[in-house]
């Protein structure tokens, strides 16, 4: 099996509450997977388990055939697993450019300062933030903050990017900008898991769609078929 991500029997409970239960999911190299579900269905818990924030989860997570158990978040990031946060979390005291150099300066082996800055500059150009390279995050608009978050995540050229609600609250044209960006990134070979409530973006982007409801994956398949299944309409779109 040559999946970039292979999740088997993933489960997580908080106290008595089961947030995730028996999740199985694979992502092929270069694939675009959509992940949808109502609020509280376990999507964010899923991301946090994969990224290493909850080391005490049940089940197995393989990343490029390597089990991730026991690896800390930064070790997973260095293996080529990038994630964004729902609310952008820029480094406030650093400039936009410095923000993007961070993953490059802390890769294994680290890039020298000059190379890291050059690569970061290229990333900023790609997301259209080159003019704001020397601004501080507090002066950025919401959409620019999302772009910065994406630039920081894609700078180390990850094998897998988990984009967690990067389009929430953005306007129609802003969604299109981010979508173009994700397509371009995917064109370079990065697999993308898109977690999103903006259905237009999900259907346009995903080659495959998985639906979480109450901590379980209820259905998975090609987007049109999945969205037409009665369970999905009842559990998700009906609300």
């Amino acid at each position: 099996m040559n999946a970039v991500l292979d999740v088997r029997g993933l489960g997580k409970t908080f106290g008595g509450f089961t947030a995730l239960n028996g999740i199985a999911l694979t992502v092929a190299p270069g694939e675009r997977l959509g992940l949808v579900g109502p609020n509280g269905s376990g999507k964010s818990t899923f991301v946090n388990c994969i990224a290493g924030d909850f080391p005490d989860h049940a089940g197995v997570v393989l990343f490029r055939n390597r089990p991730l158990a026991g690896l800390k978040p930064h070790e997973r990031a260095r293996l080529g697993l990038s994630r964004t946060f729902q609310l952008p979390r820029p480094f406030r005291s650093l400039t936009v450019l410095e923000n993007v150099t961070v993953p490059l300066r802390f890769s294994v082996p680290p890039l020298p300062v000059a190379d890291a800055r050059a690569r970061a500059r290229a990333c900023l150009e790609r997301v259209g933030l080159q003019d704001k390279a020397h601004s501080h995050p507090h002066s950025l608009t919401q959409v620019d903050l999302r772009k910065l978050e994406l630039a920081r995540a894609l700078a180390p050229e990850p094998a897998l990017l988990i984009a967690d609600e990067v389009m929430a609250g953005l306007s129609h044209s802003e969604v299109d900008q981010i979508l173009d960006l994700l397509f371009a990134l995917n064109g370079d070979g990065t697999a993308v898991i898109m977690i999103e409530h903006v259905m237009r973006a999900i259907t346009a982007f995903s080659q495959r769609l998985a639906v979480f409801v109450a901590g379980r994956k209820i259905v998975e398949g090609d987007p049109q078929t999945v969205l037409a299944t009665p369970e999905v309409e009842a559990a998700y779109l009906g609300t």
């Binding site: 990224a51 290493g52 924030d53 800390k72 978040p73 930064h74 070790e75 990031a77 260095r78 990038s82 994630r83 946060f85 979390r89 820029p90 480094f91 406030r92 005291s93 650093l94 410095e98 150099t101 961070v102 993953p103 300066r105 802390f106 890769s107 680290p110 920081r152 180390p156």
Partner: peptide
């Protein structure tokens, strides 16, 4: 130094620092 850059990311947002590959501990 690189250490200083890493410490600054920890001060600003420790979780985001780890997600960017910074060995925070």
């Amino acid at each position: 130094s690189r250490l200083g850059l890493g410490l600054a990311t920890i001060r600003d947002d420790e979780r985001a620092a780890a997600a960017a590959g910074v060995p925070t501990l």
